[in-house]
């Protein structure tokens, strides 16, 4: 019996090795949001087009994508063209211009096309904090009633859209 005690370290290690093996190759970057299943937090932000302060009631009455972007973010320019394609297909996308300079953002949309039905200015990044984002770009799928259904960190492309689409129904 006492002899078996000396096998404890070995057994513990083997168990740990099994856990490691299972975890190999998993995507550690995947981060579900704690906000999934909850309503969009209350906000008051400036609408880029009208310069008026708007709140949650300005959001679309159909499922839509909430996309955080900025002119300083290289990945955002990478996904911009694809967002344009989605908009042409009739997907409703609301953009949040995150910690950005408004003139630069306006120029950017004028040059590259505007995929957004509404652009909100989050110059100080407060709304970003409320939404728990860690950087740009990040995209949320939101239901017609304002419930957050899914969160994606990073660039939206064709592969990602397949997942997002599932949540848009």
């Amino acid at each position: 019996m006492k002899k078996l005690l000396f096998f404890i370290p070995f057994i513990a290690f083997v168990a740990l090795g099994a856990v490691f093996y299972q975890q190999l190759g998993k995507d550690t970057e995947y981060m579900p949001s704690a906000l999934v299943g909850q309503q969009i937090p209350d906000f008051k932000l400036v609408d880029m087009e009208t310069d008026a302060v708007v709140n949650n009631s300005a959001m679309p009455n159909e499922p839509y994508l909430l996309n955080f972007w900025a002119t300083w973010c290289p990945s955002c320019s990478a996904e911009h063209a694809y967002l344009g394609e989605l908009a042409e297909q009739g997907v409703n996308i609301v953009g949040v211009d995150y910690k950005d300079e408004t003139p630069a953002a306006k120029r950017w949309l004028a040059e590259r096309g505007n995929p957004y039905s509404l652009v909100l200015l989050d110059e100080m990044g407060h709304f970003g904090v409320d939404m728990g984002i860690t950087g740009a770009p990040e995209t949320f799928v939101v239901s017609a009633t304002g419930e957050i259904l899914y969160r994606h960190q990073g660039v939206v492309d064709e592969a990602v859209w397949k997942t997002l689409k599932g949540y848009m129904q």
Binding site: K2, K3, L5, F6, P9, F10, F13, V14, G17
Partner: peptide
């Protein structure tokens, strides 16, 4: 690690 812990289990007792 596995073989050294196994060796340990055999010898240290």
């Amino acid at each position: 690690i596995g073989s050294s812990l196994f060796l340990y289990a055999l010898r240290a007792s």
